[in-house]
C-alpha cells in the first residue's frame, strides 16, 4: 500500500526536476502554424526565423504569447511561465536567430500586472 502511494508521487515530481524542453514544446504547441523550423507560411503564419519582432522587446513578445494576437491564440491557460520561457528562448536562439532568452519572471510580471479578463462562455457554434 505504501509503495503504490509512493509511485505516483515520484512520477509527478519527476518532470518538475527537469527544465521544460523548449524544442518539443514548440513542436507541440506552435509548429502547426509557424512550421517545424519557424519558416511560417507566407500570407498566413509569420516566419519566426529572422523575425525582428520575435528578437526584439522581450515584454512585447511575452505579452503576445500570453494574450495572443490576430490568429494566434492566448497560451496563458495552457502553458506555465517556465514553459513559455523555454519555448520563446528556443525560438530566439534557433534558425539563425540570436536574441537572448526571456526568463520566466518576465511572463510572471505581466501576469501579475494584467487586468483580469472575465471568463468567456464556451465558444461553441
Amino acid at each position: 500500500m505504501r509503495l503504490s502511494l509512493l509511485a505516483p508521487a515520484l512520477l509527478l515530481a519527476a518532470p518538475a526536476l527537469a527544465a521544460p524542453d523548449g524544442a518539443s514544446l514548440f513542436a507541440n504547441n506552435c509548429s502547426a502554424c509557424h512550421q517545424a523550423h519557424g519558416e511560417g507560411i507566407e500570407g498566413a503564419f509569420p516566419k519566426l526565423a529572422g523575425n525582428a519582432f520575435v528578437q526584439g522587446d522581450p515584454k512585447a513578445v511575452a505579452e503576445t504569447l500570453l494574450n495572443g494576437r490576430g490568429g494566434m491564440p492566448s497560451f496563458k491557460d495552457q502553458l506555465k511561465d517556465d514553459e513559455l520561457s523555454a519555448i520563446i528562448s528556443t525560438v530566439r536562439s534557433s534558425w539563425g536567430n540570436t536574441a537572448p532568452p526571456i526568463p520566466p519572471k518576465t511572463f510572471t510580471a505581466i501576469r501579475n500586472g494584467a487586468v483580469p479578463v472575465p471568463a468567456k462562455p464556451t465558444p461553441g457554434h
Binding site: 513542436a27 507541440n28 504547441n29 506552435c30 509548429s31 502547426a32 502554424c33 495572443g68 491564440p73 492566448s74 497560451f75 491557460d77 495552457q78 502553458l79 465558444p123 461553441g124
Partner: peptide, 13 residues
C-alpha cells in the same frame, strides 16, 4: 472532438 484556441493549435500539430 471540437476544440478551440491554444488546444486547437496543439491538436493541429
Amino acid at each position: 472532438y471540437y476544440q478551440f484556441f491554444a488546444n486547437a493549435a496543439k491538436v493541429s500539430a
